[in-house]
Write a protein that binds this DNA or RNA. Sequence first.
DNA 1: CGATATAAAATCCTATAGGATATAGTATTG
DNA 2: CAATACTATATCCTATAGGATTTTATATCG
Lengths: 233, 233
Amino acid sequence: MQNRNSMNLTDSPDPSGFIQRANSLSGSVYDAIFAQLMSLKIAPGSRITVDNLVRELNVSQTPIREALGRLEGEGLVVKTHLIGYSAAPQIARRRFDELYQLRLLLEPDSAARAAAAMDKEKLAALQTAAGVMGRREGTDERLRYSTFARQDALFHDKIMEIAGNELIRETLSHQHTHFHIFRLMFHSRVTEEALDEHEALLTAFAAGDAPGAERAMRIHLERSRDRLLPAFE
Amino acid sequence: MQNRNSMNLTDSPDPSGFIQRANSLSGSVYDAIFAQLMSLKIAPGSRITVDNLVRELNVSQTPIREALGRLEGEGLVVKTHLIGYSAAPQIARRRFDELYQLRLLLEPDSAARAAAAMDKEKLAALQTAAGVMGRREGTDERLRYSTFARQDALFHDKIMEIAGNELIRETLSHQHTHFHIFRLMFHSRVTEEALDEHEALLTAFAAGDAPGAERAMRIHLERSRDRLLPAFE
DNA sequence: CGATATAAAATCCTATAGGATATAGTATTG
DNA sequence: CAATACTATATCCTATAGGATTTTATATCG
């Protein structure tokens, strides 16, 4: 490997006191491909050729294949023997419906748990996360929605974190990755409705109102689904 | 590659009429490692060395690294830079609790959906799956429980299939992989209780009784959890 | 001009090699 | 004898190479 990039070694120990390990090439390649998938530079369903990545990233085939294997395990790319890798296809209507059914089973219950576990600090963090979404910066519509979608995901993820079940949080976070790509392709106007729905959630959380939080989350998800459904027509 | 194994090419087209592709080496390596994880030949947390697999499977490093990358993406192995791969650790009490919380959110609702969608053919398939579990063959206690656990998983998976949300089915199936390893390590007597609980489910399904199926599933999961909890003491 | 055949180019897939790092074993010191 | 230093071995990681397969471009035929 002729690449002379500086090592990613930092002297700052992580919280446990250990020295942080340098990143592997395959890890960095994974990050690069992941970012390209998230930004639609690699479009859903499109071919991902190893040799192109060799040229583009200036590393050998080996870490690339390893990173693609990992992305395959995560469902973000698809591999066909002798043909190669391609980005996972865009989610179809059926998967969209299934996703919202899953979310409607998991997120209202988690919102109720979050409300029950709420304290001042957590509430402040949620309010900050929600407040950031109201800011409209930049003129590029798509970029603004992209930012909005990312912040929306962070807001929801924070709720899941407060609810306290890491497995559910990870499950939804993983699904969010796929969903994010979908949203980017079919961006729509940032709407005041979502923000209002988030406010209703925050109100329930502030009151420690578990049933209210559950109801508000359910309504939010149902409306979010209905806002996005036109993408399939 | 000096391996002269015959190609896994079959002339029988799949249902769609396409000719089936030969398996890749990396795919076969994936299957082999997966099987070793599932059978505890590779114990949770233990090292997985590429060079050992090279010798054991008689293939080069490349497909092995690719397969391990995929297993990493699925969470079944863990990679540490410069140290290598190891099997994912055994699930801890906390993850166990989280898993049952997830199951209790998803499976009763799915049982109700399955009951609503029930017909004679599906019911017969479920009865077959449940009936197989009552058979006790062999003298090796651990193997018998292993078989029981696998059949139990198939029974639950069938219910999820009938319920009709493939995303939920996949999510639970993926969690089942981790759970299976746990169960194998902490096997307990096959108990009549689980079978009785399955019977209660079948009764509700036969009656197309969605609320009853939901209740029966909830009770079954709670008792299953309580049967397994001693493993953490 | 469309269909078919052939050739060329691109890509896939795997093996091999070698330097870097971690681990295990052995020797030395106090 | 425990701690430290040194050496040897094993393993990790990545680059490179080459054969096999697929895709693309070109030529030929009817």
